[in-house]
Each structure stands twice: as structure tokens, then as C-alpha cells.
Amino acid sequence: MKCWRCQREYGDRDFICPECGALQGPRPDLSHFDRLEMSPSYHIDTADLADRHRRLQRQFHPDRHASRSAVERRFSLEHATALNDAFRVLKDPVKRAEYMIGLRGLDMRDESNQIKLPPMFLMEMLELREALDELSGSDTHVERGRIEHDVASRYERTLDALGAGLDGTDASIVVLAQYAAQLKYLKRILEDLHALAD
């Protein structure tokens, strides 16, 4: 890496040029895990993640570089933005899982990558939807609570399976993507249930 100001070489881990002291821009090639200095794994300690985010923001946040040059201030904004983005994705289990599937080469957001779900699952979702429609209106909070409990525990089980698959070596990328897609369905149903409760 070359310093943008004095053109000297600097090390991979440096963000301040050892020669002239200039703040360097963020490296675009880092994964979210690299950026927060963690090894890529689904099972992470979220308290540790938050600590790392805070510690790194202390180094890079624009408030820490307010009296530097305009170029360096822009770099610090870019660093802080990238750190916030990495933290946002990694702290959420579903986003983290989707991101890890992406790292393995399958972009879940790309609609051309249609993920086929088992017909059995889709059928069950349809039935759940119907049950939900029947709920609204009358005083059925016991029934709603039962459905919510079922869906929530299923959501947890699917997430666990996805996490185990991501950290293991056996599961294929297609199976992992299916779990992730199922989570989306389940999450939407949970949100609708919460909306009903409100």
C-alpha cells in the first residue's frame, strides 16, 4: 500500500502513514469480519463485536479527525461508515447468515438467484397465512399466542440449523440459502402477528 500523500509504502495493518502521519482511506477489499478484526464465523460473541466496533470507531470516527485535512476527513467518514455497515450486518443473526452465504458466492438479494423452497414448506406457510386471516377481528389472543409461539420456535430452530451449517463443512450452499429464505417467510409472519397484537 502506498501513502496518498508522501507516496511511501506502508504496512497492511497501518491506517496512519508511519512516514508522514497522514490518515489513509479504508481498504475496499475487506470483508465485514476483517474490518472488525474477527475471524469469519456465524457463532460470534455479540458483546465482543460491540466492543470491537466501539474501539475501532474511537480510532476512525470523523470526530477524532476533525482538525485534519479535507481529504483525511473524508477518509475518516468512509472508515466510520464502513465500520457501521459491518457492525449493522454482523450483529443481526439473519443478516449475518445472508452475508456469509454471499461470501460463499450466492447473493441472496439478487432476484435472478431464485431459491427453490420445498413445496411442503410453502404449503405450511399458506396454511399459516389462512389461520392468520381468520384471527383478525374477533378476540382470539390465546390462539394468536399459540401460533406465535410455534412460529417463533420454528424460526429459532431454522436459525440454529443455518448457523450450524455455516460454521460446519457439510451443508451445501443451496441448503443454506433455503434455510435463509425460509427465515424470511417466518419473519414476515412473526411481524404480522406482532402487528395484530398492537
Binding site: P62, L77, A80, T81, N84, D85, F87, R88
Partner: peptide, 8 residues
């Protein structure tokens, strides 16, 4: 409630 600075 997204942490700032943010970009999307």
C-alpha cells in the same frame, strides 16, 4: 435509528 455516518 441507523448509526451514523451511514451509507446504503
Amino acid at each position: 435509528c441507523s448509526q451514523i455516518p451511514a451509507s446504503r
